[in-house]
Design a protein around this nucleic acid. Structure first.
Length: 419
RNA sequence: GGAGGAGUGCCCGAGUGGCUAAAGGGGGCGGACUGUAAAUCCGCUGGUGUACGCCUACGUUGGUUCGAAUCCAACCUCCUCCA
């Protein structure tokens, strides 16, 4: 463990909680943070209108900065979005329209506001958008100003690039330029807001180091980089994937109940790590909860779920989700309030609707076929009764306490109401 | 610019004229066992109000054929070597 030897409260806590993977100059960073407030940034690409759990470690890092009196800067990749991040290959290459980008920016900003305090104070967070400067860039100027400081030899030596070449994956010029633009962002934020630290996932190391170099060469200033570890669950799966894709942070994309469930279902081996990274609980509490054995660790998971959910959706919503879970899983209550609700038109239930269709309607299956398969596999339940006939009809008579509860498996529940 | 190789479902990957909605694995979903965990075992894993029907799918477009992921042509993209 590298957790001691740091003087600044931020570095001590960040290290102890497991946020630090690599740092360009730990001693200098520690020093700067011990002396005063430091501004640090992380970039977010507006590829969707919400962030998801994959970005959460970065957000928590910004939060930690704020807690220790430093200034977090969230940089929106509004400019780079118009190029399309090439690292996603095929998928992300479709170009986004201006409207999509600005809608996504607004959505992401909403996510960030849950976690950070924005404003004009010393440790208030700042939202920046690289479109503000990238849109104005002239190619030749960029090449002369920034391009000269990039050595192809050097770039080829970066792991991120080398791997691609070794695997015969091919690397486009565009992608190559990505690190130039990112470096340019760093310098711009340094000039505009005095940002001296760039944070990111471990995959960003090469780009971050490039930025550090650029600022040193052109501005003779020493800035730093710090990366977080790549998060996988203990069974080696990349974190944050679930039935319907990503675990989103915005309620519009993922009901609070489901967000709470995501954390509740953490593997035993990850509980301690996640408590330290994704909650504000004191380290002693994390250690105590982590050490619970056997079924007792479920208590720790509930605390993890409620704490993590509170950070994202607020205490009330988190408590409500916890209670809904308790009623549903422990007390076997059929229609606990605060389960995700899906409303359907009155007419639909008046006429009666085939079960499989209602499951699709409620979002528990993506297609009719998937819903039918769910029923055939014995995983579909209506009001807790296993559905036998996929074509069976559901109607108003099936309402219990004003709702019909649909379940996919043991964990996914939706209340269907008329609205 | 020249020569050679490659492009298959969410991912990896087999398949070289009909038995192919396409082996196998991963991932995902469901079931069993548990502790709403992990591990293990079992089932499912294009769409379509289910239909040995129709539609979509083996880079793109066209062609050969009763029939094409499979053969031919052109094109696109990627890789390797040469200039």
């Amino acid at each position: 463990m590298v957790e001691n030897g740091f003087q600044s409260s931020f570095m001590q806590e960040a290290a102890a909680r497991g946020f630090i993977f690599q740092c360009t100059d730990p001693a200098a960073l520690d020093d700067a943070m011990a002396k005063g407030s430091v501004a640090a940034y992380i970039g977010f690409d507006p590829t969707a209108d919400s962030l998801h759990v994959g970005s959460l470690i970065q957000i928590m890092m910004l939060r930690l900065l704020q807690k220790h009196g430093h200034r977090p800067v969230a940089l929106m990749g509004g400019g780079t979005a118009r190029i399309g991040d090439p690292s996603f290959r095929e998928e992300a290459r479709r170009l986004m329209t201006e409207e999509t980008i600005s809608a996504n920016l607004a959505g992401i900003e909403g996510c960030l506001r849950q976690f950070l305090a924005f404003g004009g104070g010393a440790s208030d967070a700042i939202l920046a958008n690289n479109a503000d400067w990238l849109d104005k860039l002239a190619y030749i100027d960029l090449l002369r100003d920034v391009g000269v400081h990039f050595s192809i030899n050097r770039m080829l030596s970066f792991d991120s690039v080398k791997n691609r070449l070794d695997r015969e994956q091919g690397l486009t010029f565009l992608e190559f330029n990505y690190s130039i633009l990112q470096s340019y962002d760093f310098r711009e934020l340094n000039r505009r807001h005095g940002v001296v630290l760039q944070l990111g996932g471990s995959d960003q190391w090469g780009n971050i180091v490039s930025g550090v170099d650029l600022v040193r060469r052109t501005d003779q200033k020493s800035v730093m980089g710090l990366t977080t570890p790549l998060l996988t669950t203990s069974s080696g799966v990349k974190m944050g994937k679930t039935a319907n894709g990503a675990v989103w942070l915005s309620e519009a994309r993922l009901p609070v109940f489901d967000y709470w469930q995501f954390w509740r279902n953490t593997e035993d081996a990850d509980v301690g790590r996640f408590l330290r990274l994704f909650t504000d609980l004191p380290l002693e509490d994390c250690a105590r909860l982590e050490s619970l054995q056997g079924a007792d660790i479920n208590e720790a998971k509930k605390i993890l779920a409620t704490e993590a959910t509170a950070l994202c959706h607020g205490h009330e919503a988190a408590q409500a989700a916890a209670q809904a879970a308790r009623q549903t899983f422990e007390e076997g209550k059929l229609t606990a309030a605060d389960l995700p609700v899906h409303t359907v038109p009155q007419a639909m239930l008046a006429e009666g609707v085939p079960v499989f269709r209602l499951f699709v309607e409620a979002g528990l299956a993506k297609t009719n076929g998937e819903a039918r398969r769910l029923v055939r596999g014995g995983g579909a339940r209506v009001n807790n009764a296993v559905v036998q006939d996929e074509n069976g009809v559901i109607a108003e008579k099936d309402m219990v306490e004003g709702a019909i509860r649909l379940s996919s498996g043991k964990k996914h529940h939706v209340l269907v109401k008329v609205g």
